[in-house]
């Protein structure tokens, strides 16, 4: 029987036949490292395509775990991942390794802070698959500082949007958005359909393949949006919005969104009725210790190797992660969430 060599060019033969990539492009892909930030809908889709394409090193980072409501559109996950509440980055890593064992794949269960970004100053490309503008603006500053291209993607309902941010060439995200949009304004109460996700991931990964194979002339230069339900599509050349006084990409950059404050940080998770609390100094949490503490207080708990879930007074539930983060489920109110957090975790 023929024993397939999964590291051979044969598996990529159709992509190599595609003339703008070719064997040369395929070899380039193998040398490249892509960081995918977010392993939700967009992150799953982008990671699968890039893993199948043969990008040599993929890192995928995410702070959340798999839930039943993800399965409709987050293509890497299974019912079993949801029932065991596996962290998405870990579940994604496992699945991607089944898809392509000849590349380096690592999943990072973490909130992507400026400190975490600093570990990736040598990547060739960052794919934005996050769900919030706080993280996007730190990606934006980091990429300007380190001269790394990044591809914005987002979707809501049947709508999607994408843009290629190329330091030194295009305006940056701070140029396009004058201030951080209020979190509430972008939280999804509209739901989402999978085709909108797939359209954005197709756009993001097509542009990624151009960047990684150094087909710079083929790169799309417009801000692109579409609505698959209302049959609309729009493209704007936004190059005139590049601002010389921009604090992220202008003549005297200050990278305001990389300034890390050493204090407990709370963030509402869009559309999840959940607040994430991140301790001021990251530390490894002893989940079995906390499990016994909460059981001693009379609460029901569930634990796997990566997280501990505790059912509090209805409607609240909290989830502790190994890296010290805690999700308070059942509220969008940061003050309420903090008061619950401090009840158990001190101040």
């Amino acid at each position: 029987m023929h024993e397939p060599n999964y590291d051979s060019f044969k598996r990529y033969s159709r992509q190599i036949l595609f003339q703008p990539i070719g064997k040369n492009g395929q070899e380039k892909l193998k040398e490249k490292h892509v960081l995918i930030i977010g392993a939700g809908a967009l992150g799953s889709g982008c990671a699968e395509i890039l893993a199948r394409s043969g990008v040599g090193t993929l890192t995928i980072a995410d702070r959340d775990y798999v839930e039943e409501s993800n399965l409709q559109r987050q293509q890497l996950y299974t019912e079993e991942d949801a029932s065991t509440s596996l962290p998405k980055a870990y579940a994604a890593e496992q699945r991607l390794k089944q898809i392509n064992q000849s590349i380096e794949i690592s999943g990072l269960v973490t909130d992507v802070t400026p400190e975490v970004l600093e570990r990736f100053s040598d990547v060739d490309l960052i794919i934005d698959a996050t769900d919030n503008f706080d993280t996007r603006l730190s990606i934006n500053d980091f990429c300007q500082k380190q001269n790394i291209p990044w591809i914005y993607g987002a979707c809501l309902g049947s709508y999607g949007i994408s843009y290629n941010f190329i330091p030194g060439k295009t305006p940056c995200m701070s140029c396009l958005l004058e201030q951080i949009p209020l979190t509430g304004a972008t939280c999804d109460s509209e739901g989402i359909i999978a085709p909108a996700v797939q359209m954005v991931t197709s756009i993001q990964t097509a542009e990624a393949l151009k960047i990684l194979t150094e087909n710079w002339d083929s790169l799309r230069t417009t801000l692109l949006s579409f609505d698959l339900w209302n049959n609309e599509r729009s493209e704007i050349d936004v190059s005139v919005l590049k601002t010389d006084s921009c604090l992220s990409c202008g003549a005297n950059p200050d990278f305001p969104y990389l300034k890390y404050q050493h204090q407990t940080k709370a963030a509402v998770l869009c559309g999840r009725n959940t607040v994430q609390i991140r301790p001021g100094s990251p530390h490894q949490a002893d989940l079995s210790h906390w499990e016994s503490v909460f059981q001693g207080l009379g609460y029901n708990t569930r634990r796997n190797s990566y997280l501990l879930s505790v059912s509090l007074e209805k409607p609240y539930r909290l989830v502790c992660f190994l890296d010290g983060r805690v999700f308070i489920h059942g509220t969008n109110d940061i003050q309420k969430a903090k008061s619950i957090y401090y009840r158990f975790f001190g101040s």
């Binding site: 809908a41 809501l156 729009s234 704007i236 559309g271």
Partner: peptide
């Protein structure tokens, strides 16, 4: 023509204008 954000409150809209409106969303 891309319109400067500061002038949205004064920039006139006229019959027959061709507008492209691209909205940033956060979901992913």
């Amino acid at each position: 023509q891309v319109i400067d954000k500061q002038s949205y409150s004064v920039a006139p809209v006229n019959e027959g204008d061709q507008l492209e409106l691209v909205k940033f969303v956060g979901g992913g």
